[in-house]
Amino acid sequence: MEGLDRKLGVFSALPIFIVLAITFLAPLFVVAAFSIMPAKVFSLANVPDFSAYATFLQQGYWKSLAWSLGMAFASTLLLFIVCWPLAYGMAKVFGKFTLVVTIAVVVSLFVSENIRLFGWVLTLMKGGLIAGYLEAWFGVEMESPLYTVPIIVFGLVYVYFPFMLFPLAQGIAMVPDDARQAAADLGASRWRILWEIDLPLAAPGIVVGSLLSFVLAAGALAESKLLGGQAVIVFADEIETAFTYGQNWPLGSALSMVLILIVGSLAIVGVSKIDLDAIMGRKR
């Protein structure tokens, strides 16, 4: 019976595996292949050439990589802190009201990211919504927060909010109430319960949420362009420039590969540390 189950499992997984191979793995291979191609050749029949990677190391691309990863880290951390109370409420306190919160957050996804970010630009810009009203009502003049690093991080937090919130709520829902009660009964304070019980038992949700937010934020482009006005150049920006303006496909591919490797290994380490089945639904 078990052998049959195993075979059926393989067969059931086959269609999605084929789809993933064509749409996900194949493009990755193409990018990998481009990254070891000599510049301006556009043919695969060449001796592998790693000069694009050398360019990455020599020409200061690591700076924009550091900005991207740093801001992704900052926004992930902020997202975790901001989302935890709300996720806790959704999982344990709100009851039916959770649905309202869910809908409210999901609805924001219906509007394209760029348009929402433009909305923030209009709100925050010099003489924009906030600055304009402040001046008209109170006579206060305000510097626009736009075109700075903090506002880029704010944009990342704003855009990737749902990606942290929902996995976190799912993770917190898995923390058994009686374990929290027992910990309290055995003398633990709220903070101790958070540290000893909530955080470790919600770990799958925390890891999934953090990975999603971090990976997306590390490759984000629009926030730094629209809100940041390129106060700093993020890594995704460098990649785009290499492919378009620079017409240096091997360089663009090599930069992409660097990001993919960093983010991919983070994801693998993260996922291997947690029990994904716990959050995705238990295996039989």
Binding site: P176, D178, A182, A184, D185, L186, G187, S189, I197, L201
Partner: peptide, 16 residues
């Protein structure tokens, strides 16, 4: 509960 010198064995046991 966390300030009382008593404690309970839960129905579910509530082990961590």
């Amino acid at each position: 509960a966390n300030k009382r010198p008593t404690c309970m064995v839960f129905q579910s046991l509530a082990l961590f």
